[in-house]
């Protein structure tokens, strides 16, 4: 039996010690916003916050989580979808299929906590999550928008408006 603090609530879960936190979150706790994409910590679809740090939960055994650790999933990032990252993402219509976006949003939120005004290079280094729809262009712009650094946000506006329609 493991005791987990997820999104401010304590859950007692019965799982084998080697069960990855991802699957405890999805199958025992029932929060499915955190996705399985690769199982080898490569794609980032399973990104969560552990004590404020972004962590890929698909390789982290539940037994490695201490009772005092604070886990935040996409469902707990904000009470009412009002996190600046969520708002910026919605304003720029970043998401296409959306499957990877829980992880993208969690990674971006963690980046902005550490570096409130990230440069493009900071974004390149921090955002290694995979998106097959190819929303990278808008992810970059949305991070700048959420940070209040306007540069690339203006790029998207220019591009999308660059139509002669």
């Amino acid at each position: 039996m493991f005791q987990l603090n997820i999104n401010g609530r304590v859950h007692k879960v019965d799982a084998e010690p080697d069960t990855p936190l991802l699957w405890v979150i999805r199958e025992q706790v029932g929060l499915t916003g955190t996705k399985y994409g690769c199982g080898v910590a490569q794609c980032g679809a399973c990104s969560i916050h552990l004590n404020g740090e972004v962590v890929r939960s698909c390789l982290l055994p539940v037994s490695a989580v201490k009772p005092g650790d604070r886990i935040v999933t996409i469902e707990g990032l904000s009470r009412d979808s009002s996190h600046p990252v969520q708002k910026a993402w919605a304003e720029l219509d970043v998401a296409q299929c959306g499957f990877c976006q829980s992880g993208q949003v969690m990674a971006a939120a963690a980046l902005l906590r550490k570096k409130p005004k990230p440069t493009d290079k900071d974004i390149d280094e921090a955002m290694s999550n995979i998106c097959r729809c190819g929303t990278y262009h808008r992810i970059r712009a949305a991070i700048h928008r959420a940070a209040g650094t306007k540069t690339a946000a203006a790029d998207v506006a220019t591009d999308a408006g660059n139509t002669t329609v």
Partner: peptide, 23 residues
Amino acid sequence: TNFHNFRVMKIAEMPKVEVVLPV
């Protein structure tokens, strides 16, 4: 077999993209 040897393009490699839609 997985993303470690099937390398997928990430944000760092994404160029600036501009679009023209002629009518």
